[in-house]
Simulated assay, not measured.
Amino acid sequence: MDILVGAGRFYSRMGVPYLLDEEGNIYATAVTPLVTTEEALRKILYDFLFMRSDRARDYRHTSQDGIDRLREYETSNRSTVMGLSRMSDGLVHPEL
């Protein structure tokens, strides 16, 4: 299996089911995948097919502009945390 779609939480590598191989991709939706929209599933499929296919990229040959954009992204997201939860009316759900 190459894709795991989980609901409401991110999985660490140790928590990944055994069916997912080392090259597997993990996605987390805000709701159970059973009610996820077609649009959300298309986003996952697009990411899997086109955005994550560049695993062997050699960053030693990245342009200075690319390095600058990466540095800007990392600087502006130093405090960003993905996978946090929020409680509302006694129900816990992912913070989006």
Rank of each mutant, 00 (worst) to 15 (best):
M1N: 14
D2P: 12
D2F: 05
D2W: 02
D2M: 06
I3P: 03
I3Y: 04
L4P: 09
V5F: 11
V5R: 02
V5Y: 06
V5C: 06
G6Q: 05
G6S: 05
G6K: 03
A7W: 04
A7G: 01
A7N: 03
R9L: 01
R9A: 04
R9P: 00
F10M: 14
Y11A: 11
Y11P: 04
S12Q: 03
S12G: 01
G15T: 11
G15D: 15
G15F: 08
V16F: 06
P17L: 08
Y18N: 07
Y18K: 14
L19I: 13
L20A: 15
L20V: 05
L20Y: 03
D21M: 11
D21T: 06
E22Q: 10
E22D: 15
E23I: 00
E23W: 02
G24W: 00
N25V: 15
N25M: 13
N25D: 06
I26W: 10
I26A: 09
Y27F: 05
Y27E: 06
Y27G: 05
Y27L: 00
Y27Q: 06
A30G: 09
A30D: 12
V31L: 02
P33K: 01
L34P: 00
V35L: 00
V35G: 08
V35Y: 00
T36V: 04
T37F: 02
E38N: 05
E38V: 15
E38T: 10
E38M: 12
E38K: 11
E39C: 10
E39I: 13
R42Q: 15
R42S: 13
R42D: 15
R42K: 05
R42H: 08
K43M: 15
K43N: 14
K43D: 15
I44F: 03
I44W: 03
D47A: 00
D47C: 06
D47Q: 09
F48I: 10
F48D: 04
F50D: 14
F50S: 13
M51C: 15
M51K: 13
R52F: 14
R52E: 07
R55I: 08
A56W: 12
A56C: 10
A56I: 12
A56D: 15
D58W: 07
Y59R: 13
R60L: 12
R60D: 02
T62C: 05
S63C: 06
D65N: 12
D65I: 07
D65R: 08
G66S: 04
G66N: 11
G66Y: 08
G66T: 01
G66P: 01
G66M: 05
I67D: 09
R69V: 03
L70W: 12
R71G: 09
E72P: 03
Y73D: 14
Y73C: 04
S76L: 15
S76W: 09
R78F: 04
S79K: 09
T80Q: 11
V81M: 08
V81I: 15
V81A: 13
V81C: 07
M82D: 05
G83C: 11
L84S: 06
S85P: 07
S85M: 10
M87T: 15
S88H: 10
S88C: 10
D89T: 08
L91G: 00
L91Q: 14
H93K: 07
P94Q: 13
P94G: 09
P94S: 12
E95S: 04
L96M: 14
L96E: 09
